[in-house]
Design a protein around this nucleic acid. Structure first.
Length: 548
RNA sequence: GCGGGCGUAGCUCAGUGGUAGAGCGCUACCUUGCCAAGGUAGAAGUCGAGGGUUCAAGUCCCUUCGCCCGCUCCA
């Protein structure tokens, strides 16, 4: 991975954001080649999902797949995120241990303690089992003292009971003798052993890991906040979207009402999203600002599972078609218990990145979302989002249908473009020590930022002029798709090697023979092999390779 | 947030408290007739940042930022 990151920097694929200021955690910029490559990926998605969805295939309903685009705002009405569940889901109250910095979800505190706290499970064995019909375990202060000085010291060094057993245990006699009829339960006992100075601090709750006292629950803000308006008041608070999908759901009705689309159809949206990841890591894989390419495909509930399978299979095939062809790419269906209650299927397209291996990292999620989102927005906004399907319902005497009103179900293939670029880079990166240029990038021609290069074999004898003419011709025809390079300087091997490292699939070289018979050599990046073709067939050759 | 590692030229990395280095790459010229060939010259550095110790700090100490790894988290 280090070698890949180093190449990314060296050749201008990916830079650290704000690098001259020391960088900023969780943000990355694309250099010239990276920006071209990402554009190629976005463009491929756009072509194959919006302009010519699923390569013109028929869907499970037997008709061509129809999709339209939208481009929605990063900032939406705050209620959008309330309705979608992000505001609640993205802000789990967490408690932080003052001693070791460990985080615990406040709502799962006791479960976490019982399930995963070593010291708690050790300490509890020092209690006598509670007699039948009571909540009170038998307590023995000398056993607890012994535990505090032995096991406790190792397992829970910051627990009050361990730091100061005499003081901490002093409550015990008072408490038990004072209220013999209301014996303490386990939670109360735990609070007491975490409390050194009852009068000063009140009862405390211990960290499941080290026993130190936990702070009050604090909101974890996973959404970026800002203010729409000049004053930073709660009234003006807005959020940067954590996913592009909600913009689609919110505009669903408008698209239906204004563009003559008919169910089933999809709405696509690409753009930046933002999440305050707790731990941005693994190069660009988990960034705080990232770009998504999402399609929300709306269909009748009865057809939804068939469409789910359709998109799941197509998306897998699509990633393969642009270069992720090895078995590093897998499709993982979520288990039944992993599914949301409204979903009948979700899968991830996953790639085995060098930093996840032997595991996999998610590239794209294909989710059956049911009508969850439209239901939520209908409820929160009060707007009617139902679709009136004139092709369904019982057959009327006049031959038309009565129609059916329903909330469509939705299949969501949601791809991460930055993760896509990263996977394509990892997949393309190849080292072959047998080659003169051992390090090279095997990009699919459709994705490659540099599409071709034209070289004079040597910089004299009319070759550079000839090369310049061919370069101009190719550039005119293919320059919109990507870079067409040319370079008359230095030895041919060096120029080939440079192109290999940038992932340029084809080099066309003018040599002495060109002068006499009007042929040039084509060098294939992956094999290094060469063939001669006529100079006036070069554009045709390249067009074919680029999939025109 | 914790623990570990790292941070010196575009890249990979040397550098013992005492003048800032190498290889590759890059630029120019020469040479060059198919795979990072050779020669000559050149440009390129806030030694991550800030503070401290010292006559003197890339080197020692403290703080901080970033990257990588392991925990933790991941709707």
């Amino acid at each position: 991975m280090d070698a890949i990151m180093s190449l990314c920097k060296r050749r201008g694929f990916i830079y650290q954001a704000s690098e001259i200021y020391g960088g900023i955690n969780g943000f990355w910029d694309y250099g010239p080649l990276g920006a071209l490559m990402k554009r190629n990926l976005r463009e491929a998605w756009w072509q194959d999902m919006i302009m010519n969805p699923a390569w013109g295939r028929k869907g499970p309903n037997g008709e061509a797949v129809r999709c339209v685009p939208v481009e929605t705002c990063i900032i939406q009405h705050p209620k959008v995120w309330e309705a979608s569940g992000h505001l609640a889901g993205f802000a789990d109250p967490m408690r932080k241990c003052a001693k070791c910095g460990h985080f615990v979800r406040a709502d799962q505190y006791w479960d976490t303690l019982v399930e995963s706290s070593e010291w708690f499970n050790s300490l509890i064995q020092e209690f006598e089992p509670a007699p039948m019909g009571t909540q009170t375990p038998g307590l023995d202060s000398s056993r607890m003292m012994k535990w505090a000085r032995g096991k406790g010291k190792k397992l829970a060094p910051n627990l009050a009971l361990v730091r100061n057993p005499e003081v901490t245990l002093s409550w015990l006699a008072t408490r038990v003798n004072g209220q013999p009829n209301v014996p303490p339960d386990v939670q109360e006992i735990v609070r007491h052993v975490a409390t050194e100075q009852l009068n000063a601090t009140g009862l405390q709750e211990p960290c499941p890991r080290c026993g130190g006292e936990l702070g009050a629950p604090a909101q974890f803000k996973l959404m970026f906040e800002t203010w729409a308006g000049l004053t930073q008041t709660d009234d003006n608070k807005v959020y940067l979207r954590p996913e592009t999908a909600q913009g689609i759901f919110v505009q669903f009705k408008n698209v239906v009402d204004t563009t003559r689309v008919k169910i089933p159809f999809g709405i696509g949206n690409t753009g930046k999203s933002f999440r305050n990841e707790i731990t941005p890591r693994n190069f660009t894989f988990r960034s705080r600002e990232f770009e998504q390419a999402e399609l929300e495909f709306f269909c009748h509930p009865d057809e939804s599972h068939a469409w789910y399978q359709f998109w799941r299979d197509f998306r897998m095939e699509w990633w393969r078609s642009i270069g992720l062809s090895s078995d590093n790419l897998i499709l993982r269906e979520h288990d039944k218990d992993e599914l949301s209650h409204y979903s009948t299927g979700t899968c991830d397209v996953e790639y085995r990145f060098p930093f996840t291996a032997p595991g996999y990292g998610e590239l794209e999620g294909v989710a059956h979302r049911g009508n969850f989102d439209l239901t939520q927005h209908q409820k929160h906004s009060g707007a009617k989002l139902e679709y009136f399907d004139q092709e369904r319902g019982e057959l009327l005497p006049n031959g038309s249908r009565k129609g059916e009103r329903y909330l469509p179900h939705c299949i969501e293939p949601a791809a991460g473009l930055d993760r896509g670029v990263l996977a394509l880079i990892c997949e393309a990166y190849t080292v072959d020590p047998a080659r003169p240029s051992p390090e090279f990038m095997k990009f699919h021609p459709r994705i490659a930022p540099i599409k071709a290069a034209v070289f004079p074999l040597v910089n004299k004898d009319g070759m550079p002029e000839k090369a310049e003419a061919l370069h101009a011709e190719l550039n005119k025809r293919f320059g919109r798709q990507g870079l067409i390079e040319t370079d008359p300087k230095q030895t041919i091997g060096k120029r080939y090697a440079r192109m290999d490292e940038a992932g340029c699939p084809y080099c066309f070289t003018i040599d002495g023979q060109t002068m006499t018979d009007q042929t040039i050599t084509v060098r294939d990046r992956d094999t290094g092999s060469q063939e001669r073709i006529a100079i006036d067939k070069v554009a045709e050759f390249l067009g074919e390779k680029l999939g025109e």
